[in-house]
Design a protein around this nucleic acid. Sequence first.
RNA 1: GAAGGCGUAGCUCAGUCGGUAGAGCAACGGACUUUUAAUCCGUAGGUCGAGGGUUCGAGCCCCUCCGCCUUCACCA
Length: 455
Amino acid sequence: MLRRTGGKLHFLEIRDWSGQKIKRALKGKDHAGEEIETWSSYIQVMIGQQQVGETGWKLTQELDLGDLLGVDGTLGKTKTGELTIFADKLTFLGKSLQPHPDKHSGMQEMEFRLRHRYLDLIYTPDTLDRTLKRIKIIKTIRNYLDGQGFVEVETPVLHAIAGGAAAKPFKTHHNALDIPLFQRIALELHLKRLLVGGIEKVYEIGRVFRNEGISQRHNPEFTMMELYQAYGDYRSMMDLTEGLIVACVDALGGSRQLQYGEHTVNFEPPWQRACYADLFREHVGVDMNDREAVRAAAPKFGINPKVVVEKQEVGDKDHDVIVHELFEHAVEDKLIGPVFVHDYPAGLCPLTKRQRGNPNIAERFELYVRGMELANAYTELNDPITQEQTFRQQLAGLPEEDSMAKMDEDFIRALRHAMPPAGGLGVGIDRLVMLLTNTTTIRDVILFPLLRPEK
RNA sequence: GAAGGCGUAGCUCAGUCGGUAGAGCAACGGACUUUUAAUCCGUAGGUCGAGGGUUCGAGCCCCUCCGCCUUCACCA
């Protein structure tokens, strides 16, 4: 609430949260001509001493910035043309005891904004705008997938074994059963069990947890969408991904050309599809299957082809590992996209089916936009014997206390009852929202990101 | 984990060469009947992130620590 007082006549601007979405023009020089869609708007209220009576006038004298006020009156326009409620009755609804931020400068410091998100929503129009867009994107994903015949499910967050990805889990404990439990790091293994169970088009949108570092692109809890389609493969996943994300872009109501930083990204389909090996050759300059050439090229991109443990070179890195490090350094930044990078070196993808006729290539793609991995999809491995072997290989070097070091025997048993061949897709919702709302930090697309406790 | 930047009133920010701690908004008191962030007059508000050092004297210089931001590293 802004207040301009004038003797026996006051003008207030109150924020109206009627729940109805409207277009609102942003005020101020910086936003001239801009509109956002929101459910909050400001409307002016005029309060005259004679109109609101003695108690109403007394109340008016006591109002502070941030108070909640009910107004009955007549809608009209002032002589300057501003839409205004001419109040004849005031109802006091809530008191602000804490001083609010500067009504013009708003909130500048990131930490203050994050620790007072309720104020940030009021004083930083972009925060509310991004929040509404996030909700709309998630709703669009549900509508789109439901329309394609997918079934949304809920699977456990607490796992006895945290599998489906390579990440450190959060650990907790169940008292009655007296067992350790982990918060999930992926949705994959339960959704695949459902494939076995005959739910042939299945998805989940849910929170996953990884006990790792925090950065502009990482929050310890974040939202994943994973879907699995029986009798699909990574090619069908590309078509689905393209349709899904274009639907999200369209849902935001603007153009299919979206600004992100200094780049404009064109989401108009069809999107480029590029083979991993071709991109590698183009940007690194050597054939990724040429082991000598790859090894020789590594130092040019600042990559050490030796494994370094505590500053000792203890051996040669695996060929596919060097290839991918080169890819990350030399190629990723160039992928403004959207571009599907497909056909990955098999060594990088233990859970992926090999290409028919080429065991060195995995049927996988990642969708890159502006150098960021936005989606990851496979033709899923459905052979229980191969799956068990790759699990064992993957776990071989890990320390015992690492939860990843435990084999999910139940999952293997499920596969042994026959999982249909399937395409699978994972999308990091937070990063998708970042991209579609031109936001540089994940902390601004999550309402309450994890912060170090105060003091 | 490394480097750089920042930390001053509830908020947004000044603070020069090392010389008494500042402004606007918000709050409080008063005046005012047509305003578009900011009417006028007045009042109050501070462990200058914390601790140590140099100095006659430190918001400012030096050291240590804490927090946040940025970049890099790590991490699917």
